[in-house]
Design a protein around this nucleic acid. Structure first.
Lengths: 214, 214
DNA sequence: CGACACATGTAACACGTTACATGATTTG
DNA sequence: CAAATCATGTAACGTGTTACATGTGTCG
């Protein structure tokens, strides 16, 4: 659904052709979310079917152009005004994974957290590196009212969102670990003897050993 | 893809029937991500097609059971070991929206940020309320080795992830706002005179007026 | 000319959502 | 018995991904 509106937003700047839309979409989001070209064409077909865009002649080079319609502009402005619904967020694979790992036999949840943390931190490093570059780019292109500066700023914002998100994820993983330690301590005191749980001992060790590179 | 593995994880506890899987899935994730029953059956068919599960007779009540296979267990354990790839995260609608709003004519990006922030903060309140309840539930069910306590803990973790995420989003929105203020200040100084930017003035004001409740 | 890149499509497939159809069981 | 509920499925649709087929320029 976001691609639909993303393309509409680009088309509001003026008529574009398919592959151009892909390029501009990726300049804005800094190739974080590579957009398949085929997707552009199918989405354009659907937008045309829904009356949001219309074919608008050809380029100098003969590329078929699409233009946004009034209905498309209406839809686009509604999209900008309507906040993204965060009360029913998209399913997050990591959250589901940890939810399923809680108390599951044969799964060492702390190992799951560990390996995820290292992946998360690695992503964090990449993002930080990219941000340094993005800052330089913004600096260089600032002052030009061209689309270059606009794209660089957009990319910087996207990147910073990724950083904020990743940081939150890392902190959450730490939080999970300490929370599980605390809970298992009280649970063990309440239900099962601390060291005599042979089921856990037998199932945790091999799961742990199986981890690492793959 | 997370539903697939989520169902597999539940099936590793023992054979289940369709609607039971849905119920258990929702107990774990605390109804954050309501799971359509139909989805369960189609996913089970695909899992069976791929050799991850097999029909395993009937319940006492006559419900058709599915059991996980060795291949399914293998797949499941790989899933637990393999960290979620955060270097190519799923497209985020909000990030795309802001990226498209940067420098777009007819769009007041600060208004977009504002309305999103209020939606985000509202979600935050809901989550906080839910967390208070979840803590009580965990407290009450702790010490029982039953599936109740496990589900309550899983739900608490999921909830806390949502809280961490939402908090990060709110902070990012603030960050965007101040960053845009700073950038537009330097951009204006660099390219166009501070107050005499008629293009900006003409495009921002009406966009602002058009926004608000809808 | 041949290789390469660019651009436009289309087909096949996976996943997810909604809605509908159909039995079986329980409950007023 | 009638209504409601639970459970199992299926159909239609939207979105997204990958891969393939095809044309059209450009450049060595």
């Amino acid at each position: 659904m976001s691609i639909r509106h993303g393309l509409l937003a680009l088309l509001e700047q003026g008529p574009r052709y398919g592959s151009q839309l892909r390029t501009e979409f990726e300049s804005r989001t800094g190739a974080t979310w590579p957009l398949n070209v085929g997707q552009v064409y199918t989405t354009l077909s659907r937008l045309e079917r829904d009356g949001m865009v219309v074919p608008d002649g050809d380029d100098d080079a003969g590329h078929p152009l699409y233009a946004i319609t009034d209905a498309g502009r209406e839809e686009l402005h509604e999209w900008f005004e309507r906040p993204v619904d965060r009360t029913s967020p998209p399913r997050d694979e990591l959250a589901i994974k940890l939810a399923m790992a809680v108390g599951a036999a044969g799964v060492d949840i702390r190992a799951v957290i560990q390996s995820q943390r290292s992946a998360t931190l690695k992503a964090m490093q990449d993002y930080t590196r990219l941000k340094a570059q993005a800052l330089i780019a913004v600096e260089a292109s600032s002052g030009q009212e061209s689309e270059r500066g606009r794209d660089d700023v957009a990319w910087l914002l996207v990147l910073e969102q990724l950083i904020f998100q990743t940081e939150a994820e890392a902190r959450w993983l730490d939080h999970c670990e300490s929370r599980l330690v605390r809970l298992s301590a009280t649970a063990v005191r309440g239900a099962t003897p601390p060291q005599a749980d042979t089921t856990k001992a037998a199932s945790e060790k091999p799961a742990r050993a199986r981890l690492g590179r793959r």
